[in-house]
Nucleic acid binder design. Sequence first.
DNA 1: ACCCAGGATCTAC
DNA 2: GTAGATCATGGG
Length: 286
Amino acid sequence: MYCEEKQNECKIYGIKDFSLKHIFECGQCFRWKPNTSGGYSGVAGGRYAEVYYEDNVLTIKGANIKDVNDFWFNYFDLARDYKSIKEELSGMDEFMEKAVKHGNGIRILNQEPFETLISFIVSANNNIPRISGIIEKLCSRYGNKIEDNVFTFPSPKELSNTEVCDVSECSKAGYRCGYIIDSAKMFSNKPFTPDDFKNCDVNEARKIMQTYKGVGPKVADCVLLFSGSRQDVFPVDVWVKRVMNKLYGVSSHKEINEFAMSYFGNLSGFAQQYLFYAIRENYLEI
DNA sequence: ACCCAGGATCTAC
DNA sequence: GTAGATCATGGG
C-alpha cells in the first residue's frame, strides 16, 4: 500500500476488502452522500472530501499527503486486516458467511469521538434519513462553513454554548436536544479518546459511556465501536434483535449480548455490522 | 388514526 | 433489577 499526491488529491494504492457503498451505507456514519461522479462526498475530521474507489485504488479529492497521514488513513481503518476477520466470521456458520459476503467491503470507520457521541444520541428511537437530516441541521447552524453549503460538525464548545429551544428549533431533534447539550458540556469539560477505553474491561467502558445523558446500552456500544474505541461490543437495536432472534434463538437484550460475546468474541463489533447491513438490505431472507 | 424508527429515562414495584 | 409509560418528529 502506498500513497501518491497530485493537485490536491491523493491516491492510495493496494487497498482491498473495501467498498464505499458498504462503508457509508451500513449505518455507522451519517454525513457521506453519493455524488454525481460515482463517488461519495462528505465531511469528517473537519475536512471536506470527495472519495472514489476503483481497482484497489482509493482516491481522496481535497486531501494532501499530510491529511492522509494525519487523518484519512486511520479514519478508513486502512491498517486493519479485514480479510482474516471475514474468513474467521465466514467460517462460523452459514448466516455469517452470507452476511459477510453481502457486506464484504465494510470497514468500521474510526470516527471522531464527539461527533460519534452526539450522532448516536440523535439516533435513539429515530430513523436513519431523519438522523442524517438532524445532524446536517446541527452542522449548518453551529459548525463552521468550509465550502459552499458545507459545514464541519460543531465542536464541543460550539454545541455547549446553545439553548435547548434554539437547538430544538433549528434541528427538530425533539426531546433529544437536552441530552445533546448536556453531553456536549460534559465532553467539553472532559473529552474522551479511544485510548481511554483500550485497556479496561468492556463492561467498565460501557458503564463510563453511559454516564453521558441520552446514552444507554445500545448507543454506548455504537459510540465505542464507531469511534474506534472497542471492537468487542455488540450494539443491539430493533434490527439486530430481529436477526439474532431468528438466526440464533436469543431474544432479550441481555441474552443477545451474552451470546454475541461468547460466540463472536473480540470480533463482535464486526459481526454486528455485517449482520446489520445484511438484514437492513433484506439479504438474509428472514 | 396508528405504527415505526440504529432507545433512553423516569417511575413504581 | 425489571416492566410500563413517556418522550418529539416525520414518514408510511
